[in-house]
Simulated assay, not measured.
Amino acid sequence: MTTQATRPTTGVSRTAVIIAQARAREHARPDRLFTDPLAEPLVEAVGWIPVQAAGRMNEEHFVLRTRFFDDCLRDAAGAGCTQVAVVAAGLDTRAFRLDWPDGTRLFEIDLPGLMAYKEAVLGVQGARPACDRTVVTADLRDDWPDRLTAAGFDPGRPTVWLIEGLMMYLTEDDNDRLLGRIGALSAPGSRLALEHVNRAYTELPDMRAVHERLRRVGASWVSTMEDPVGRLAGHGWRAAVTPQTELARRHGRPVPRLTDPQIVGDARMWLVSAERVGAERTP
């Protein structure tokens, strides 16, 4: 049983529940793009959160995003990145639902309250990870690398990093600091997968109600990224963007309305994959 204090009902933690809801609904589909039997229990323990029209439209994006990052992590692990770091892990369940190579070690980093809630639900469900899973409780705006390495993370081992649904909630400086710290911990051969948005996306009329609701729960978006390839190059990564149009075609799904260039013009919700190419500057 979880206490009210540990339930993710406010701030960015609330968005973790909304994303888990999308995964739960996708898991129930006969043509699902991924399996996630733990998503529904994680939602049910706190209660389903009503979403606005834009949130419902974005649910197709959340599904494609989940599959995209699943594939990024699987490809990286197959290429030898058997150390995985999920940044702001929230209610992510990839440690349990993906088939990991032998010897994979996965670290989940997030706030103590959210992780306590998650661990309680996973315990009730008797969930067993498919890899060596370690939870690291930390605020990503603080000095989390020391906590990560103290938990057994090896900076000399190629790592695949995942930053899903986080960067828009951090300031530009915090994002640069985060990327700098990740780079400093990334051995040659490491990979990175992340999501961000450009300014045009934040200004979409369909997003106004979303921004107002996020503001009310203390989870406003405070940064954008106009050129993810160039931004990551400055941190020592060779990056590529995969458009949702390509993912929709690949998986036989409709293009999510709020990511369809024919509807939203220059607005973009970037899905980025990258490989380590050089030494990182000092964070």
Rank of each mutant, 00 (worst) to 15 (best):
R253G: 00
T82V: 14
R238W: 02
C131K: 02
L114S: 02
V222K: 07
F69I: 10
R7L: 08
L42R: 04
A219T: 03
G113T: 08
P243Y: 11
D174V: 05
S186H: 06
I18A: 06
T202W: 08
R14P: 10
S186V: 12
A187F: 04
L140F: 07
D99H: 08
R281C: 01
E44I: 03
A130R: 12
R177E: 13
V272E: 02
S13H: 12
G165V: 13
E40T: 08
M168Q: 14
E203G: 03
A85P: 09
I18C: 04
L64R: 03
R29S: 14
R67A: 10
A28I: 11
A240H: 05
S190T: 07
T15G: 07
G189T: 14
R249L: 09
V121P: 07
R281M: 01
A120F: 03
V86Q: 09
W100L: 05
Q83A: 03
D146I: 08
A20R: 11
S273V: 08
R14N: 10
C72V: 05
L122W: 09
A248D: 05
T134F: 01
T134S: 04
I109E: 03
R231I: 00
A88I: 06
W237F: 15
D110P: 03
A184K: 01
E226Q: 04
T104A: 09
D110I: 02
T35R: 12
R147W: 03
L73R: 04
G123A: 01
V222E: 06
R74M: 04
P101I: 02
R97Y: 08
R29C: 10
P155E: 01
F96V: 08
A193K: 06
P112E: 13
L179G: 12
Q244E: 13
F153K: 05
V136L: 09
D142E: 15
L194V: 14
R7Q: 15
V12E: 13
R238N: 13
I18Q: 04
A85G: 14
P228R: 02
C81R: 15
A279W: 04
L106H: 11
R215A: 15
A200R: 13
